[in-house]
């Protein structure tokens, strides 16, 4: 058995989720290769070679700059033959490419794998995580997207893996890049942060949403939001946490002004500790919260920020 893992990166850095995906791959075999397809992505290839993998395949060409499925999927298809499994993170990147690859190889895909039971059998959440299905693939080659938060990360390797250039050039036809607007933030990255503060519609306005940012900063936390908060224009779309947004599993989640719809809970229920601040005692988020504070957030959150500050000052 051998696994080909598709690297997610921005041509400069490997996504941290790759270590978790590698952790998942290693539950199947230690023979894992990573494919880095990109443009001027030498630094990424080097980072990948420091992971405990056999080889790093690098397709470094202008045509792969934007990670289009239209050419990345056929590129992987040309390399697929020797592998029993092909994996990618269950991110928008992996989910864009792997099903298209499935079509080219004539096989199915196991999305959002959270447990690997054996090389053909896995668990995955369905119905926004309200049920878990066990499925077995009978396909000749098994394609998966891995939910990174469900797997331990693999350790760094002591010996760098061999880097093998791949010269195949496939132009992505019919698709052209126009622009990308990246959400830049000095806060930790939402999907991998240890502490996450999420804000909901209860924060009322974009101006008042600043309170969530302030709380996040006093904890060194990442910031997330509900769909309602995003739709109301409080924060950009990639802050959305939930069934159709990001899935998070931090050590600590604090939800403020969030009712706890199942679609939101789907994204947070693997958090170690869930704290909810809401003034409605019947808010469903209290059913999943380890600690629920029944309070008006506009008084409780400033007080919390103040207490956290006092603590910070006392300890130094």
């Amino acid at each position: 058995m051998s696994v080909l893992l598709l690297a997610e990166h921005n041509n400069q850095h490997l996504s941290t989720s790759m270590e978790n995906c590698l952790g998942a791959a290693q539950q199947i075999t230690n023979t894992v290769d990573i494919l880095v397809a990109g443009y001027q992505c030498g630094a990424v290839a080097k980072e990948a070679s420091e992971l405990p993998v056999r080889q790093v395949l690098v397709a470094d060409n202008l045509c792969y700059e934007y990670g289009f499925a239209e050419n990345t999927a056929p590129l992987i298809a040309t390399l697929a033959k020797p592998y029993s499994h092909i994996m990618a993170p269950a991110s928008t990147f992996g989910k864009d490419i792997i099903p298209r690859l499935g079509a080219l190889l004539g096989v199915g895909v196991l999305s959002d794998v959270i447990t690997i039971l054996d090389e053909r059998t896995i668990e995955r959440p369905i119905y926004a995580g309200n049920a878990i299905e066990t499925v077995k693939s009978h396909d000749p080659i098994i394609l998966m997207t891995i939910r990174p938060t469900a797997f331990q990360s693999a350790c760094k390797s002591t010996q760098p893996a061999e880097i093998i250039p791949i010269d195949t050039v496939i132009e992505a036809s019919g698709v052209h890049f126009c622009s990308h607007s990246a959400t830049t933030s000095k806060r930790p990255e939402l999907s991998s942060a240890q502490v996450v503060v999420c804000g909901g519609r209860g924060l009322k306005s974009k101006e008042q949403f600043a309170l969530a940012f302030e709380l996040a900063d006093s904890l060194g936390a990442a910031l997330g939001a509900t769909r309602a908060a995003v739709d109301a224009g409080f924060v950009p779309n990639d802050y959305q946490v939930g069934q159709t947004g990001k899935i998070i599993a931090p050590q600590l989640y604090i939800g403020i002004g969030i009712s706890g719809a199942i679609q939101h809970i789907a994204g947070i229920k693997d958090s170690k500790i869930i704290i909810a601040i809401n003034h409605d005692e019947n808010a469903p988020i209290f059913d999943v919260a380890d600690y629920g504070l029944l309070a008006d957030l506009f008084t409780a959150v400033p007080e919390l920020i103040q207490l956290l500050r006092d603590k910070g000052e006392k300890s130094c």
């Binding site: 096989v107 049920a131 299905e133 229920k269 380890d290 600690y291 504070l293």
Partner: peptide, 24 residues
């Protein structure tokens, strides 16, 4: 059925939480 569902289960429930009264 090249992808075969073997079974479906309910996810493990979270343990019952605690209600707090104050920020302190």
């Amino acid at each position: 059925p090249h992808i075969e569902r073997l079974s479906v289960r309910t996810p493990a429930a979270r343990k019952k939480g605690v209600r707090l009264k104050t920020v302190a």
